[in-house]
């Protein structure tokens, strides 16, 4: 049975169910115990599961992931938390040079079943605390990169990530933890692949993921009021990347807008656009538009920050652009 809960509670439910199911699953990270996690995802876990299974660590991101890799080879299923994706850079060597490659380098002798939970996001946090790096990890064969937007997906993907034999970058978003949605009770697993068409439309396709999905939906609703029907696709998983779903949609709508929170240069949007021009070149009636952040380190001041991060208005404007609406109005 499904009921409405928050994204945060969906994550907690997934963690709890998997910890109850499998003694090998344990949590490790900075401030996840007594402090209950920087985004309070692990509230009550220390009391419930004890120090053996909920481990506070020193401020050592490299060690958190490096130990998880070792513990995974030692037969456990570590779920580690890196406070934000900005700090994952300190563990990049263990993620990219180890977690992603051990299975291949060992010719299949060892798997590295780790889940790295981390949060993307921003909100007056400054240049080194507001970044969006899913594209960096999605670049690497051997990793799975999941970025759920809805509470239901958060639960289904996290449970599957914990059971997967592959290393999974599980990227949450600090601004959607309180979002509510229907989530199935009990066992609910989603395969770690596949985009989803969340809204059907005929005039334009808007693609996004994580918090960007809500921007896309907001824009689609606004555009519907002026008679533009947008198809909205939530990519959900960025490696493997389901470009087939996007291509099918573009074959129907002939226009594409990609919304991402990161810088556009060499980003997920560039990759999706490349795939679409390779597979649906003849279907495009307008150049593909990408909505992303301004290419600048994030400033702290709120008014400046707002200039950097795309909002719903930018998405609406991009849709009008690919539909040549402003040009038509000008004539």
């Amino acid at each position: 049975m499904a009921r409405e809960i928050t994204y945060r509670d969906a994550l907690r439910e997934a963690l709890r169910e998997e910890m109850d199911r499998d003694e090998r699953v344990f949590l490790m990270g900075e401030d996840i115990g007594a402090y209950e996690g920087s985004y309070v995802v692990t509230r009550g876990f220390l009391q419930e599961y004890g120090r053996k299974r909920v481990r506070d660590t020193p401020i050592s991101e490299l060690a958190i992931v490096g130990l998880a890799n070792g513990a995974a080879m030692g037969g456990l299923r570590p779920v580690v938390e890196l406070m934000t994706i900005n700090f994952s850079l300190l563990a990049m060597d263990q993620i990219v040079n180890h977690a992603a490659k051990i299975h291949y380098m060992f010719n299949g002798q060892f798997t590295v079943p780790i889940v790295i939970r981390t949060a993307s996001g921003w909100g007056q946090l400054g240049a080194t605390h507001s970044q969006t790096f899913e594209a960096w990890y999605a670049h690497v064969p051997g990793l799975r990169v999941v970025m759920p937007a809805t509470p239901k997906d958060a639960k289904g993907f996290l449970k599957s990530a914990i059971r997967s034999d592959d290393p999974v970058m599980f990227i949450e978003h600090s601004l959607i933890y309180r979002n509510r949605g229907e989530v199935p009770e009990g066992e609910y697993l989603l395969p770690l692949e596949g985009a989803e068409v969340r809204r059907e439309g005929t005039d334009v396709t808007i693609v996004s993921w994580s918090r960007g999905y809500y921007l896309a939906m907001g824009a689609a609703e606004e555009l519907a009021r002026e008679g533009i029907e947008a198809e909205v696709i939530d990519m959900r998983v960025l490696r493997p990347l389901d470009t087939d779903t996007v291509v099918r949609s573009v074959q129907k709508t002939n226009r594409l807008v990609i919304v991402e929170e990161s810088w556009r240069t060499l980003g997920m949007g560039a990759e999706i656009a490349a795939a679409v021009q390779e597979q649906a070149f003849d279907y495009l009636d307008a150049p593909i538009a990408r909505v992303g952040s301004v290419e600048v380190p994030m400033p702290y001041a709120k008014n400046l920050e707002r200039l950097v991060i795309p909002g719903k208005d930018e998405v609406v404007a991009a849709v009008r652009e690919v539909l040549y609406r402003d040009l038509a109005a000008a004539r």
Binding site: G66, N69, G70, M73, D93
Partner: peptide, 12 residues
């Protein structure tokens, strides 16, 4: 990098 893996294996 291997000293971290060894420590994780010891943890396990």
């Amino acid at each position: 990098t291997q000293v971290l893996h060894a420590t994780g294996i010891a943890l396990a």
